[in-house]
Simulated scan of single mutants.
Amino acid sequence: MNIGLPREIKDNEYRVGLTPGSVHALVEQGHRVWVQSGAGMGSFISDEDYRSAGAEIVPCAEDAWAAQLVVKVKEPTEAEYRYLRKDLLLFTYLHLASNETLTERLLASGASAIAYETVQTADGTLPLLRPMSEVAGRMAVQVGAMYLLKTQGGRGVLMSGVPGVAPANVVILGAGTVGTNAARVAAGMGAAVTVLDISHDRLKMLDDHFPGRLQTLFSDRLNIQEVVGQADLVIGAVLIPGGRSPWLITREMLPQMRNGAVIVDVAVDQGGCVETTRATTHSDPVFEIDGVLHYGVANMPGAVPRTSTFALNNQTAAYVLSLANEGLAAMRHDRALLHGLNICRGHVTHPAVAQAFELACVSPEALIG
């Protein structure tokens, strides 16, 4: 099979879909890999690195997109919609439940699209979402700490405090992979950390892992309202696999929050768990409403591309090889990939995407034979 690796063009997105190691594994299996010149430069991977691994360097995006299987990191932007076609198999993060336009364009094109974020194993694990959730969770605390600086518009609070002065009060909504990693870093920095979730098992796990270093609370409206009002930093870490995130912080809660408080909504790529959140970019990351700074960058891990690219490929490489070897037929024996299929030949195949836009959902098994 011909596999294409185009350069990412989303604002300040420096990750790349394949490492030289992944390319080498594909070439060893007899596949051709077309890498757009400069695709890896943001992650400090040169054209020569890819060439040495067996890739063919192509000059233009069109050349990479002409492949049967295109591997990316982020969803196609408007400038890339013209490359979508019925014989294309696309493997990337999609987050379709918060992007109706892209959903419509994929359906109209007849392309088949597998979303990293909904590839799901039998035990419920999301193996291709996890590495970027780990990065984003840890970054969220770093980003929040920076924007708490008065010089960045925040409350002027040091995360750790100092002897005689209380540390920052950090509230984390969600105890999944993002929330757990955020809690690890925030507690490590000496902040006062409160984590909320609806899963007793997740809260118990955090309690056991960080004894005496954080507080856990059941996530309900009253608890959220109380702790958010006392927070210096709020991290939104809610995930509905494939679906739109619910609003846990409403517009009416903002006036009760501290002036100069910071919200980092990691759930923004699924619509956000804060009603006032909107997607921002690394070029223009924050905005203010009612004295509260909102950070809504939808590709946070793109700011640490070297780490993120290799962490992502550690998990995606085996799936890419399977798709290269068998195409859609790989899903006949790999149910994790089957869960990842969001769009197939003009049909929605993921229930959460269909529900988001009130579209019919077709069983993926019926479409792949």
Rank of each mutant, 00 (worst) to 15 (best):
N99E: 09
L84Y: 09
I57V: 12
Y50A: 13
N12F: 12
L96S: 01
E100T: 10
V71S: 05
A66R: 03
L90D: 03
E80T: 06
L69D: 05
K10T: 10
F91M: 11
M41Y: 05
G21R: 00
T101R: 15
V58G: 08
V70L: 07
V33Q: 02
T77W: 02
S43A: 15
K72V: 12
T101A: 10
R15V: 06
G17F: 08
A66Y: 02
V73S: 07
D87K: 15
V23L: 09
L84P: 09
L96T: 03
Y83F: 15
K74A: 15
D11C: 05
N12T: 03
L88G: 02
S52E: 14
L90S: 06
V33T: 12
G38S: 07
L96K: 03
A79F: 00
M41T: 12
E100K: 15
V27P: 07
S52M: 13
G30F: 12
I45K: 06
L94W: 09
Q36H: 02
Y81F: 14
E48I: 14
L94C: 05
T77F: 03
V71R: 01
R85M: 05
E13V: 14
G38I: 06
K72I: 11
S37V: 04
W34N: 02
E75N: 13
S37P: 00
V35I: 14
T92Q: 08
F44V: 07
D87L: 14
Y50I: 15
A97K: 02
A53V: 13
W65R: 04
G30I: 09
E28V: 01
M41A: 14
S37H: 06
L69I: 13
L18T: 11
L88F: 09
N99I: 01
F44N: 13
V58Y: 09
S37D: 06
A53L: 13
S98H: 04
K10I: 09
F91D: 05
F44G: 00
G38H: 03
E56V: 14
A66H: 02
G17A: 07
G17C: 10
Q29R: 15
P59I: 03
F91Q: 02
V58K: 08
Y93K: 02
W34Y: 14
L102K: 08
S43N: 06
F91Y: 15
A39F: 07
Q68E: 14
R82N: 09
Q36P: 00
D63Q: 15
D63W: 05
Y83S: 07
G42L: 11
Y50L: 14
V27C: 10
N12P: 00
L102F: 12
D49M: 05
V71H: 03
E80R: 02
S37Y: 03
Y83W: 14
L26T: 04
D47Y: 11
Y93C: 02
L90R: 02
H31A: 04
L88W: 01
T92G: 03
L96A: 01
G38Y: 06
L89F: 06
A64N: 11
Y93N: 08
A64P: 05
Y14G: 00
L89S: 06
D87P: 08
A25E: 12
